[in-house]
Amino acid sequence: MYDFAYHRPKSVADAVKLLKDKPEARAISGGMTLIPTLKQRLARPSDVVDLGAVKELSGIKLEGTNVVIGGMTKHAEVATSADVKAAIPALAHLAGHIGDPQVRNRGTIGGSVANNDPAADYPGAVVALNATVTTNTRKIAADEFFKGLFETALADGELITSISFPKAEKAAYMKFPNPASRYAMVGVFVAKTAAGVRVAVTGAGPCVFRVKAMEDALAKNFSSAAIKDITIPADGLNSDIHGSAEYRAHLVGVMARRAVDAANK
């Protein structure tokens, strides 16, 4: 790891100021991605701004029919939250299957969503539930947030303060983990909310994406039978030693059907 200057601000405002003042600075929330990246010397920030002491970023609260989760909330907190379990059990389930217990004790929802790793789980939930990402400056709709491989709508120095998930009528997340890393090789989040049905796929492509054909079919008939003949093209999907693009495309179908079945249970 290259050395860096370390800061531990206590407020969002101070954190943002630090990030703006130091163009080569990086924010660290749980550090589950950043620290391994630094260890491999794949990044060389001049400064690291630790959000760990920013109290206002943590916590889970209910606002009307929405669950609002602070950016620094740990995966383990989401997984075990009675509020999340009651409102959107699929979201608690997803959080409880990110990484391993130790990762869930450090990793945060804001960090995961801001990083937008193609194999991360949370982007699937954010898109399928049509969540709203709140930053220190604005609110961003899920469909506008994820831009591409490790790319988001966040501007330099912009921090996720919370994410608001609308309650789902039915929802489930099915993950096919990479056998080695256990990251999502294909993860499908299916949700039926007041706004309609959404099917979001993570892991399979360079960035989370929706499957319109499945959404349309499920809107008419929310059953796995309704999507059994819908295939998605392998073009543009990820391919590696663990899964070809063709295999991933196939798994999207399998995981989507299983997610619908689980959501109907």
């Binding site: 660290i28 550090g31 630790d50 760990g52 130790q102 990762v103």
Partner: peptide, 10 residues
């Protein structure tokens, strides 16, 4: 926690 993935200062 995994002590290889947390800074001492954290």
């Amino acid at each position: 926690v995994k002590s290889c993935t947390i800074l001492a200062v954290q």
